[in-house]
Design a protein around this nucleic acid. Structure first.
Lengths: 107, 107
DNA sequence: ATAATATATAGACAATTATCAATATGAGGT
DNA sequence: ACCTCATATTGATAATTGTCTATATATTAT
């Protein structure tokens, strides 16, 4: 269970950068090669490479090598899993862990 | 539009920590005071206070002062907004920005 | 008033991160 | 073989972050 948290923390970290969010958005439309992504962002090529590594390492994005080019695409499964996880930890129900406590601030 | 990205980056950053994810999960069940949250996590009180500040500053969590205690609860609106945003940037459609490009890797 | 309790703030430190310039790798084209 | 283009890696630097100890603030009980 702690593993699950750490896995999803990695995904949230990958999404904690404006450039990477924009990359994710671009890839939602279609597979793109790095050079096309680079055109849209005001960063250098090594910085983009670094961001793509972070996105791929957590499986949010898939890379496909094709000759000189690397084509990137969104991994829909990872997106779905993250949405599910976030839904799970935020759904409101009433299983309050402290409802039947006898002392503390909820007497 | 860039503002929207930065706003949501802040939310993703707030979720990029195992302890904070666990706090969010605890609060999904019910409002809790800091002392109750502290019991569940292996961190010191000032560290918890720091985490709560981050969660509150981005509006993911609301704090309500009540005498000695501060009661925290999840902000459902912020949760919904984040889910919408993430859905928006990840939905797959076919408006490829490079479909009609005449040069590059997509000829 | 004084003490105890709940929470916040300040300051320090180690670890992580985003970025860049420089360089390496690797695949086609001439 | 050589050159060019696309991408990755290395090494450096400044900024951010998670954690702690120590201390401050504020509220309630005695």
């Amino acid at each position: 269970m702690d593993k699950k948290y750490e896995l999803n923390v990695r995904l949230f970290k990958a999404l904690s950068d404006t450039n990477r969010l924009m990359i994710v958005n671009m890839l939602s439309y279609n597979e793109l090669c790095a050079c096309k992504i680079l055109e849209q962002l005001g960063i250098t090529q090594p910085t983009l490479s670094h961001h793509m590594k972070i996105l791929c390492d957590c499986d949010l994005v898939k890379g496909r090598k094709d000759g000189k080019w690397t084509h990137y695409s969104l991994n829909g499964d990872t997106v779905s899993n993250l949405v599910s996880f976030f839904h799970d930890i935020t759904i409101t129900d009433n299983n309050c862990m402290c409802k039947e406590d006898e002392k503390g601030c909820y007497d």
